[in-house]
Simulated scan of single mutants.
Amino acid sequence: MTTQPTPPSAKLNLRGAVDLGALAARNTRREEVARRAAADPDAVTQGSPFVVDVTEETFAELVQSSVQVPLVLDLWAEGYDTGAEALQALADEYAGAFLLGRIDAQAEPGLAQSLVQSLQARAIPLVAAIVKGQPIPLFTGSYPTAEEIRPVLEEVLRVAEANGVTGRVEGAATAAEAEPAAPPVPPLHAEALAAVEAGDFDAATAAWTKALAQDPRDAEATEGLARVGVLRRVAGVDLAQARAAAADAPDDVQAQIVVADLDLVGGHVEDAFARLLGIVQRTVGEDRDAARTHLVDLFSVVGATDPRVVKARQALTRALF
């Protein structure tokens, strides 16, 4: 069974959360890691500066380091460690954006027991993140695939950035120097991202719209435009008042849409989806259509391949038919 990360209480801001240049570089490195793994399956798990073995003696220091670099912990045991290679390959692929700490439950039983209890977990393998000393449960039991793990890691990195944790693992610069140069970011993409960083949502909207006019199949522009739409809608909204209004009027579609947007910006993706799915399930006519349309728009914000989107899209289909 897998669970998605529960972000810390700090509000997650989508501004700057998607760096297309970094994503392009990461895709290049992903291909490199895949080639190395095919040639030598052990190559991605040995000698990496981004993977460390954790003991009781080193645990406290690593947790302290999570104020600078996100820490992902992999608690494993012989006979239960099925698929950890995917995590280690991803640590190499992300090249220092997070540190992967491996804990052998049999060698470190005290540490393993403390971690399981603190996270209220029921099984190992257990994977969790730590950001600024705060634990974020990710998943337990059998490992998901690398493609399923990746969006979870992206969410952890967004939470970390929202909390000011933007450092990199020491030694990452040296590894990055060996990477092939990333393809340049398209000018209109760069213009839109710069506008979002500056808080100029009108300019960002215009740039993304131009990019889509040039290439209607530009998925990054489609997602960027959807993100700007969310940021524009929640700008200046009082969170407490919005939640109170939604609680007082559970079938007020517009009130629920506002809170769904706030949930999404706050990193509570599944809550946002569930709120709108509830409206679709219990209303008809224009209200139902408005909730459905907005939910599909939020799918674009998160990304079509995100497992949470896939799950919510299936639920939407069941609700409609």
Rank of each mutant, 00 (worst) to 15 (best):
1 M>Y: 12
2 T>H: 06
3 T>Q: 13
9 S>I: 09
12 L>Q: 15
16 G>Y: 02
25 A>L: 05
27 N>M: 13
27 N>E: 15
33 V>Q: 14
38 A>L: 13
51 V>G: 07
52 V>Y: 03
53 D>G: 07
55 T>M: 04
59 F>H: 10
60 A>R: 11
62 L>R: 10
62 L>K: 08
62 L>Y: 11
64 Q>L: 10
66 S>A: 05
70 P>A: 11
71 L>I: 02
77 A>M: 11
81 D>Y: 04
82 T>I: 10
83 G>N: 09
85 E>S: 13
88 Q>P: 04
89 A>N: 04
90 L>I: 10
95 A>E: 03
100 L>S: 05
101 G>F: 04
108 E>T: 12
108 E>Q: 15
111 L>P: 00
117 Q>P: 00
123 A>P: 02
124 I>S: 02
127 V>W: 02
132 K>Q: 14
135 P>N: 14
138 L>A: 09
139 F>I: 10
144 P>A: 01
147 E>F: 01
151 P>K: 12
152 V>D: 09
153 L>R: 00
155 E>I: 12
156 V>I: 12
159 V>L: 08
162 A>W: 00
170 E>M: 06
175 A>H: 08
178 A>Y: 03
178 A>C: 03
180 P>M: 12
184 P>L: 09
191 E>K: 12
196 V>L: 06
197 E>C: 03
197 E>R: 07
199 G>V: 06
200 D>F: 02
214 Q>S: 12
216 P>H: 08
217 R>K: 14
217 R>V: 07
226 A>C: 11
228 V>Q: 09
228 V>P: 01
234 V>T: 09
234 V>W: 03
237 V>K: 10
245 A>E: 10
250 P>T: 10
252 D>I: 02
252 D>A: 11
255 A>F: 08
255 A>D: 02
256 Q>K: 02
259 V>H: 11
261 D>H: 08
264 L>G: 11
266 G>A: 11
267 G>H: 03
268 H>F: 09
282 R>Y: 14
285 G>F: 08
286 E>G: 05
287 D>A: 14
290 A>R: 14
291 A>E: 07
291 A>F: 08
295 L>V: 01
296 V>H: 06
298 L>I: 12
300 S>G: 14
301 V>N: 11
304 A>W: 15
308 R>C: 01
308 R>Y: 08
310 V>H: 07
311 K>A: 14
313 R>E: 13
321 F>D: 15
